[in-house]
């Protein structure tokens, strides 16, 4: 089926709710700085439900997964301090790199989505 094109006139075509959400770091993630300026984020893996003896004696899954954030990625991570909203992160990034608001929004939301999928961040919606 063809994808329907969204038009400006459709009701509820607002991304304000998303902008008001706050990206919060995974408290269990361990962050370390690499010598080349990158950030390495180790996110603990959940213990699978089937992992009990004797299976656990043979199968040893990795205790954590790692993400390496380079230059701009590390900058976005630093901006996500748990207090700033997505809108504030977007504004900071736009000001630092002379981008327009929507240029910054598209970059930031795409990157935040990736970090949420990898378990590094969670989004908190204000009630």
């Amino acid at each position: 089926m063809a994808k329907r094109k969204v038009t400006a006139q459709e009701p509820d075509q607002s991304w304000q709710k998303m902008l008001l959400a706050r990206p919060v770091r995974n408290a269990a993630a361990k962050v370390s700085a690499c010598s080349d300026g990158c950030l390495r984020i180790a996110i603990p893996n959940l213990r699978p439900w089937y992992l009990f003896p004797p299976i656990s004696w043979m199968v040893r899954p990795a205790a954590s997964k790692s993400l390496v954030l380079e230059g701009l990625g590390a900058e976005v991570w630093d901006l996500c301090d748990g207090r700033r909203t997505v809108e504030e992160v977007t504004d900071c990034f736009a000001a630092r790199h002379s981008l327009s608001f929507h240029e910054s929004r598209v970059s930031i939301t795409g990157y935040l989505r990736l970090l949420v999928q990898r378990g590094a961040l969670a989004m908190v919606e204000e009630a």
């Binding site: 038009t7 400006a8 809108e87």
Partner: peptide, 28 residues
């Protein structure tokens, strides 16, 4: 000044442009 073009059409006969402020589309 804070409205940006987020949708555009290259067609000359029929087309449209969508402009948005930071929160939503404001003009088509």
């Amino acid at each position: 000044d804070d409205w940006e073009m987020l949708q555009f059409s290259r067609k000359t006969d029929v087309g449209r442009c969508g402009f948005a402020d930071r929160y939503q589309f404001r003009l088509e």
